[in-house]
Design a protein around this nucleic acid. Structure first.
Lengths: 230, 230, 230, 230
DNA sequence: GATGAATGAGATTTCATTCAT
DNA sequence: GATGAATGAAATCTCATTCAT
C-alpha cells in the first residue's frame, strides 16, 4: 500500500536502514495514563535495581519488567541516572510526609511517639520494598552528591528535626531527665539503619526479631532517660 | 597451575609450586616480594573501589595505582570479582582478630571494655580507609552471597559473640541489671554502623562529632543497664 | 492509497484521490492548503538539513520548525530520504528555469550575459539559503545515485548547455576568438562552485569579496577570449 | 588449568559476565608496528568514509576492513570523530608540503609552475583516494569548526600564499600584465575544486577530460595575463 | 487529516580478560 | 614473571517509522 509518490526521478530509492515495524500496545493518552505508566516504570526499576544494584541493572530489563520497550523509558526520564534519581525521589517524599503527619498529630508522651515511629518503620519500610530504596540510596549517594544533598535536605533534616523536637519537648516537660537525644537524635534511629542492612544481608543466615530488638532499644532508652529502675 | 599469593590475610591459600628454573635473568622473586606486591595491589584496589564503587572501577586504574601492568593482577586473583573478595577478606580478618585480642585480654568492667571498643572503632575503622571496606561490603554483599556468608561467619558471629559474652558476664556479675544486650548485642554497635554511613554521605553537609555521639550512646546504655540516675 | 503532495516543483506527481467524505468536523482542506503546508515542511527541512547535514537531522526538529507533528511529514513524503529528495528537487528546478528564461531572453553580448549570470548567482544562490541546497546536494548526491542523475539531467545538462550555446554563439559571431568555453563551459562556473564552498567553510575565517572575484574572473576570461590587451 | 586459588570462602563464585575469549592476531609491539597499524586503520577509514560518508559509516566496518577488532581503533583515537580528524590531517599535510617543495624549488616561469601544479593535482589528488579526503572535508568541515580552522590554516593559507607569491613574482617580472591572480589566487584552483566534485558525482554520467580542461584553463589564464593573441 | 507515544534496530564506546612477546 | 595490545560482548541512548486515537 504505497504511502507516497513514486517520483520518476527517484523511483529506485530504498530506505537507508530498516527500522522499527511492529508495535502493539495502545499509547497512553491522558495525563493520568502517563502517571500510571511512569509509576509502572519506577516500580520495575525498583525491582531491577534492588536485585542487581544500579550499575549492573540493564534498562532493557527494567523495560521488560514494566512491559514496555527500551526507548519508552526515555520519554519519561533523560537517562539511566535520571531514572534512578526519580526512583529515589518518588519513594521517599511520601514516606517522610506520612511520618511527619502521624507524629506531629500524635499528642502523646515521647515514649509513645517513638514507639509509634518504630512500628511505622518496621511495617512500612523494613517490611516493604521501600527498604530497598533506602539501601540503594546508601549505595549510590556518595557517587551522586546531588542525591545525598536531596536526601539530607528532604529526609534527614526533617526527620531528625522532628525527633529532636520530640526529645526536647520531653526534656522540657520533665519526661526525659537528660538531653542526649536532643544532641544526637541519630541514636534513636541507629538500630533502624542497622536493621535495614541486616535484613538485606544476614537475615537469611541469622534471623533477628526486629520488633523485639526495637522494643529492647526503646526500653533501654526510656529507662536511661526516665531514670526508672531496670 | 596455581598462581595464588600468600599473605597473612589469606592464610588458607595453598603454597605456590616452586618455579622449576629461572628463565632469562629472572630476578629471583622471593615469596616475600610476592606478598608485598599483592598488598600493593589490594591497597590500590581499595583506593579505586572506595572512590568509584566496584562496578565503575577499572582494573586498569587499579593496576596503574599499584604501579604494575593490568595483566599482572591476574597472576594474583582470577578475576575482578576475585580481587574484590580478596580485598574484603584482607581488610577484615586482621581487624577482627585485633579487636578480639584486645577485648579478650582486657580484664575490666563491661563499660570500660565497650568504651575501649568504640575508641578502637573510631580510630581504626571510622578514621581510616577500612571504613570504605565496610561500606563496600554493605554495597556488594547482597550480590555475592558467599561474601555475606564469609562476613557473617568471620566477622559478625565472632564480634557479636564477643559482645554478647561481655554483656552476659556483666549480667552475671551484677554489673548489668537486665539482659537486652545479651539478646541484641547489635544494639551496641548500631550507632557505629550509622556513623559509618553518615560519614560517607552526610558528614560534609552536616558534620557530627562521632566521639561525642558514641559517648552519649554509652552513657545512655550504661545508665539504663546499671540503673543509675540520670 | 497515494499521499503525495502537489507542488509546482513536483509537477509529475499523480493527483490525489478525493476524500470520500469528511470525518468529524474535518476542516475541508483545499488542495492549496496542502501545498502551503508542504512548502512549510520543505522550508523547515532546508533549515534543519542545512544546519546539521542530512544524517544528523532529526525529523522531529523538522516537524517542530514547520509547526506540525512528526507523523504529518509522512503524509507528504514516504521517508526521511524522500523528504530530502523532494527538497533538492523543489529548490533547484525553479532556479534553473529562471536562469534559462533570463539568459535566453537576453539578447546581448556573451560578456553581458555572463555578467548577468554571475549577478544572478551571487544574489539568488550565494546570498540565500539556496546555497545550502547545492551544498547538501554535493554532500549527499554520491550516496544517492538517482539524485546525481536527476541533478545532472535537470540542472547541469541544461545549464551547461546554455553556457555552451552562449559561448558558441560568441565564437560564431567573432566575439570570442577561441573555443575553450565551448569545450569546457564548466570553466565559466568553476569560481561559482569554489565560492559556494568557501562561503560555507572559510568565509568566517577569511572573508572574500565574491563580487569582486567574479568580476576579476570575467575580466580575465573576456580578455583571453576577445584578445584585448591587459 | 586453574589460574587462581579456589578460596574456601568463595569457591562458588562465578564471573559476573562472559567476556572476550578468543583472539588470534599477534600484538603490534614496536613503534613502527604501531605506525603501520594506524596507517592501516586510516586507510580503512578513508575507504569506508568515502563510500558512505562520515555519519553513515560504522566503526565496525572500518575495523573489519583494517582487519582488526572494533575496540582496537580506540587504542589509536579517542572517538569516531577523532578518527575522522586524524584521517583528514594525515592525508593533507604531506600533500601540501610536497607541493610547496616542488613549486618553491621550481625556478621557472609562472606558467610552467602552474602547469606543474595542475599536473601534480591531477595525478596525486584527482587520480587517487586523496580526492575523497578533500570531499569528506568539504562535507564535514562546517560541522567541525576546528577542522575548518585546521584546513584553512594548514592548507589554504599556505597553498594560496604560494600561488599568490607566484603571481606577484610574475607581475613584478613583467610576465603577467595584471594582478587579478594576486588578488584572487582562488581563481587559479577553482577548476580544480569543480573537477573534484564533478569526478565524484558526474564523471560516470558525463566523463570530462580533466587534463584537457586544465590545459584550457591555463591557456585562457596565460593569454589573459600575458596579453598574447588568441 | 493530524497527532505524538511507542517501538526496537542500531551505533558508539567501555573494559574485563587473554596471551604473544 | 610481566607486560599491555588486542579482543568483542555488552550496555546506553537515538530516532525513523508506525498507528491508535
Amino acid at each position: 500500500m504505497p504511502r507516497a509518490p513514486k517520483s520518476p526521478v527517484l523511483a529506485r530509492t530504498k530506505p537507508l536502514r530498516k527500522r522499527a515495524f511492529a508495535r502493539r500496545r495502545a499509547p497512553a493518552r491522558s495525563e493520568e495514563d502517563r502517571q500510571v505508566k511512569f509509576l509502572r516504570i519506577l516500580d520495575a526499576a525498583l525491582d531491577v535495581f534492588s536485585e542487581k544494584g544500579f550499575a549492573r541493572s540493564r534498562l532493557e530489563d527494567v523495560a521488560a519488567r514494566a512491559g514496555i520497550a527500551k526507548g519508552t523509558i526515555y520519554l519519561y526520564v533523560p537517562s539511566k541516572q535520571g531514572l534512578f534519581e526519580a526512583l529515589i525521589r518518588s519513594g521517599i517524599g511520601s514516606a517522610v510526609e506520612e511520618i511527619e503527619q502521624r507524629l506531629a498529630a500524635f499528642d502523646a508522651s515521647a515514649e509513645d511517639r517513638l514507639r509509634a515511629l518504630f512500628r511505622f518503620f518496621n511495617k512500612e519500610v523494613l517490611g516493604t520494598r521501600r527498604r530497598n530504596i533506602v539501601r540503594l540510596l546508601i549505595v549510590e549517594a556518595e557517587r551522586i552528591p546531588a542525591l545525598a544533598d536531596f536526601y539530607h535536605r528532604e529526609v534527614l533534616t526533617r526527620a531528625l528535626g522532628l525527633l529532636r523536637r520530640i526529645a526536647r519537648d520531653a526534656v522540657e516537660r520533665g519526661e526525659f531527665k537528660s538531653d542526649e537525644l536532643v544532641r544526637f537524635p541519630q541514636l534513636i534511629v541507629a538500630p533502624g539503619v542497622a536493621a535495614l542492612i541486616w535484613s538485606d544481608l544476614f537475615q537469611r543466615l541469622e534471623p533477628i526479631d526486629m520488633e523485639a530488638m526495637f522494643e529492647a532499644h526503646l526500653t533501654l532508652l526510656m529507662r536511661a532517660l526516665k531514670g526508672e529502675a531496670a
